[in-house]
Design a protein around this nucleic acid. Structure first.
Lengths: 207, 207
DNA sequence: ATCCCAATCTGACAAAGTGTCAAGTTGCGG
DNA sequence: CCGCAACTTGACACTTTGTCAGATTGGGAT
């Protein structure tokens, strides 16, 4: 191990964890470097020893906060043979997590500079899954980008709604049913798929 | 007329028009007060004589830029008896305008602090229209907020996509068909409604 | 135990942007 | 062509960002 590397890593982790909290609070958009440093118990100078500025911090927090979740989701989805069920499960994982950890959702929304919560990776994955479902003849639409827009757009709107107003516990399943139906899944299948038990989600312990 | 009011109004209009241009450009998010003032051909001091700051300017531009369009849309929709067709036409008005005037779409996206392009007014209208369609027995969903999320979320994703990648001229109609189908419009109706000729859109001449 | 060196702290600085103000100039409306 | 409001000029205080030199601290190798 490099000299002082553990201390450095610990500090970095404290900064990211603190910033994540901050971004998830009311008015988290307007957090200043000073606030972030104070929350982490360090000085501004030290902050700049770890990050070049706010943009880099945002990227780091985004990565740290989504990476475990995203890989866990990816792995869980990989075990589902039906593309339609993969779509369903992905959306429900997101929405259930937002329901369970509202600060996570708020942080995500605040982190996204211009409303695009989902990174390029998620973007491509969603489109790919839709393409697979199309290839399997499960959908009536023929444009994967169209399906991706419906999925991600509706999901982010649902997240925003769940954070703003009280929605029932069944909201994620209802959202999924509407999306699947829109993509052309047969009506009698859409509801059933949306209600299937979710596979277990195992997070990599970064401890 | 008050003393000097016309000059004042003209200056204000120049500021708003210039800021609108600026917001629609690449990197329009980071426009400074100085830039806005320069574009309008005035000094910073004069800017502050009209607006308290960036937030108020953003509000003013948002209002100015959407109000005519929104009222025109509202009026055009009012003449459509079928709630499903009102949903369809509203979405298509937005998407076609973005296609015709990309700067308008970029400005809207940049103006929205956190991705919520649509103001509270539009929010309520969308939900109300969905509620009407539900009451008319045209949809299978029963939750108007759900329909609103699907409509607005998918629409904003589609706008974002149209500004980023090249999409065919038929994209708006395809988007509408997916949304209507998702809400539970019968498959044979969804496509037909999405393709109906749009009513004329008459803007109030603010000249 | 203790020594080394990277990590952190202290305190200061320059630069950029915001918001305000007083005093002077300009141009529209009567 | 007069008066008043709109605008300009030039300056200032304040906040936030980003950097830096020098002092201090703490983890890990010996």
């Amino acid at each position: 191990m490099e000299l002082g590397a553990v201390r450095r890593a610990r500090t970095r982790a404290r900064v990211i964890a603190g910033a994540f909290e901050l971004f998830g609070e009311e008015d988290g958009l307007h957090a200043r470097i000073e606030d972030v440093a104070q929350r982490a118990g360090i000085t501004r100078a030290t902050f700049y020893d770890h990050f070049s500025g706010m943009a880099e911090l945002r990227d780091a927090v985004t990565y740290e906060v989504t990476h475990d979740f995203l890989t866990a989701v990816s792995e869980a989805l990989a075990r589902l043979p039906d593309p339609r069920e993969r779509i369903s499960a992905a959306i429900r994982f997101y929405l259930h997590r937002v329901r369970a950890v509202p600060g996570w959702g708020r942080s995500l929304i605040n982190l996204s500079a211009n409303g695009i919560i989902f990174g390029a990776e998620t973007f491509r994955e969603a489109e790919q899954t839709v393409a697979n479902a199309i290839a399997a003849g499960q959908l009536t639409i023929t444009d994967a980008a169209l399906g991706r827009d419906a999925i991600l757009g509706t999901t982010i709107a649902a997240i925003s709604t769940m954070l703003r107003e009280e929605r029932g516990a069944a909201y994620p399943e209802e959202i999924v049913a509407v999306i699947l139906l829109g993509l052309g899944v047969r009506a009698e299948d859409a509801g059933e798929i949306a209600a299937r038990p979710l596979p277990e989600l195992i997070f990599a312990s970064t401890e």
